[in-house]
Design a protein around this nucleic acid. Structure first.
Lengths: 238, 238
DNA sequence: CGTGCCCTTGAGTACAATCAACGTTCGTGG
DNA sequence: CCACGAACGTTGATTGTACTCAAGGGCACG
């Protein structure tokens, strides 16, 4: 759970009572294998999930089989706290790697909204941050060319992983394949491959075998026109 | 304000006290002209806005001048309640037509989170619904071909306007031009024009002079692969 | 040592962008 | 009242980014 509080504390001060309330709210820990669908669209929900380690994603599919990942969940994130108010999701949630999660019953979140208004606002902020990430991806998918979209994506994941100490000197682990990367970027696997080669040749970045190596972050940010404002980093007023 | 409560009541029961609290929270009514930027990205916020009539949008821009509209706000919607927790936005908010709005100070929303937990959950639901719409647009922008994207868009607006009685027999008013439609769909104006012609020729729909006329809704839904599940229509558990 | 998964490459295609011009409508001012 | 300009819509020609189809290569694992 520490990774969750670490992420929270990067933006907000939490009282001991608030932190204790959340710690005491976990009803169960689980481990999921790679490529496991944890929640299916439409299914009735009575708990939400905190991702402790690994990578999960939100998936939406077309009948044609084409699939879009609409957001990546990283260690420390709620994967589905929006399910607390929505009660069923409009998308699947699945793992991209083996994952460890903590489950929190919705009754506890209900109690939270009644007894811990500040904590409620903190988590409301969290879902609004998710929406901000969705919007940035809409901009990428709608308007950025493939290479900028990809560069922007790697910048975002860099910054978000850095929040929880998962960035090392020259890069980070991202255990997904090129097809899944394409599902994030709205590109076919073949085109992902060719675009990756462009980024490699430009000397910005390498991505292979689930490992991102960044050679030139400023250049990468320039290519992706990356501005982290939408991630609301650092202490927030609230 | 009635249009706002009408939309709320389509999904939730509101107590008289809750409704009164919101009515009493409006500090000001305003009228904006067409094409007015009401909120700029990054600007510090101390109120949120309910759209009473007209059409507004959330805009994100690239340096190149390309622009993406990430969501449309319709009469009855909060345009920026996410600003309550975020305190500044990652996008501009502007009008697509002349608009009438009601402003609610953030102090009142703060009080709401402390005294009206159920109302808080209702509005939290609202921002989660916004995120669901963002996700559906990500799917459109990333994976649907232009014509399906456009058909899907017109279906969504149809359903959302219908909620507040703004759909007439054969269609609805949508006072935007082809360039703005392209900014919603991630298409250039020229391509929007050609795609519209395809929809016209197929007999599904006509869009001209700010008016959408639907000739064959089932066909339109088929073209856009539209399933309204993501709009969480009808009474919600919460 | 296959077999399957993933990555890579090549050739051809297509959807959508770009560039450029022209038409229509409408409001405004001479 | 007509001329003009601006905004918007339409069309044609051309280009290019990204997709499709197809095949081959590397590597891990049973």
């Amino acid at each position: 759970m520490d990774v969750h509080f670490r992420k929270l504390r990067s933006r907000f001060h939490l009282s001991p009572a608030e932190e204790r309330f959340i710690r005491d709210s976990v009803s169960e820990f689980r481990t999921y294998p790679e490529n496991h669908t944890a929640i299916r669209a439409g299914e009735e929900l009575n708990h939400s999930t905190i991702l402790l380690s690994g990578f999960m994603g939100r998936y939406k599919d077309l009948k044609s089989g084409l699939r879009q990942i609409t957001e990546l969940s990283l260690a420390g994130d709620w994967t589905d706290i929006h399910g607390f108010t929505l009660k069923r999701l409009d998308h699947d949630i699945g793992t991209l790697s083996p994952c460890r999660v903590a489950l929190v019953p919705h009754e506890r979140l209900q109690v939270m909204t009644e007894a811990y208004p500040r904590l409620t606002r903190v988590y409301w902020f969290g879902t609004n941050l998710d929406a901000a990430i969705h919007r940035e991806w809409e901009l990428s998918l709608g308007r950025r060319p493939g290479i900028a979209r990809m560069a922007h994506f790697f910048c975002e994941v860099y910054v978000r992983l850095d929040l929880v100490g998962l960035v090392q000197a020259a890069g980070y682990d991202l255990p997904i394949n090129q097809t899944e990367l394409g599902e994030c970027l709205g590109l076919t696997p073949v085109h992902v491959n060719r675009t990756l080669q462009q980024l490699r040749e430009s000397g910005c970045l390498d991505f292979r075998a689930g490992r991102v190596t960044i050679y030139d972050m400023p250049a990468l940010m320039r290519v992706g026109e990356f501005d982290p404002g939408y991630l609301y980093l650092g202490p927030q007023p609230l």
